[in-house]
Amino acid sequence: MIFYILFGKFEGDLIAILENSELIKKLTLKENIDPNMLFGMANALFSIGTELQGGKLKTLDLKNFSIITNGDEKNLLVLVVDNSKKYNSRKTILIEKIINIFNLFMDYHDKNNINQESFDDLIKSLKKNIPTFKKSIKHLKLKK
């Protein structure tokens, strides 16, 4: 159910794009989903949340998918997930676990940078932290 995991800095490019290309192809959404645009949108929303006196952005539901975010002052993590009703409970788990996932990405970014070498370790840690999503995580490939 996870289309993308995007990690990057507010001021700067995306550091890591983890993509489930098979799932995107299956749902024929590839043309519609641009990870850079999604990250930009989440980035803008995250920042403007303060202006709206609403705090940080947590989720954004579009017709075809949902975005779940977490970040600190400099970094932002965006999960792009299927928002079909059958995945509602799984989506709730991801919302609860987003802080852990964010911390994992921060650890890997700080220690190793997120590259192909450290990617396998990151995937292992993700599977350990969110075992419900083992299958989804298995299909994620590092695009950047």
Binding site: N32, M41, G55, K58, D61, L62
Partner: peptide
């Protein structure tokens, strides 16, 4: 702006959750 971006990247905007509302 968000609605326009949403249209380009995945369809209608339906629901946004911030920390406080």
């Amino acid at each position: 702006v968000l609605t326009e971006m949403a249209k380009k990247s995945g369809g209608e905007l339906q629901h946004v959750t911030f920390e406080k509302f």
